[in-house]
Amino acid sequence: MRVRMNLEEIKSAIEAAVPGCRLQMAMNPSVSAQHSLVVEREHAVAVARYLRDDAGLRLDYCSNVTGVDWLDAETSEKVKVKRVVDGVEQEIEEVRKTRTPGYLEAVYHLYSMEKKHGPLVLRQRTENRGDGVAVASLTPVWRSAEFQEREVFDLYGIVFEGHPDLRRILMWDGFEDHPMRKDYVEPNDYEYEPTPHDAVIAKAAQARASEGR
């Protein structure tokens, strides 16, 4: 069951309840139309508390935490602008390019066991894709986020501030990369490939070349 209030109502309710908080809507243009709320780091915990404790929402269950790596993106759109050409004002179509710098994102899916509704999707974004970029940990609000935030930290390198025990969970301590990031380079151990195929052909050739055969 969908959350009874629509997302805009929830947004304004949160902004009224948490002083100084400005939320952003992340629209989903696909058929599912599962829009989400983007919260900034300073207010994340307060917003999460509100979502959990508000009598109308009671989102007491955080079912899923995941990460997304957004690369630098360039979007182009056509806009009609009025411009004076040869002394005559004309409407001209222009292609305007917008460059969005990349960032990392932590996504939370919230449900209510009590009200039997959900999901509400909450997102936190980092400033850039660098190392040690941080968002606020929501583990103090939902215990179920603990291991999943560790997993996001492990695989994406997002630091969760306020997490009680932020260590790698899948890879070993001392591992330096974040394998789910889009710029991750895996170690090439394709030196023996009896039936190379697709992307493996290039990897196998590269591995053979590095071994000098």
Binding site: W172, D173, G174, F175, E176, D177, P187, D189, Y192, P194
Partner: peptide, 23 residues
């Protein structure tokens, strides 16, 4: 051993050469 990017060494070369030769 657990390395920074992969296991160190990524394979036992002595063993591996035997397998490769057989193949």
């Amino acid at each position: 051993e657990y390395g920074a990017h992969d296991l160190e060494p990524p394979k036992n070369v002595k063993l591996w050469n035997i397998i490769y030769k057989k193949a």
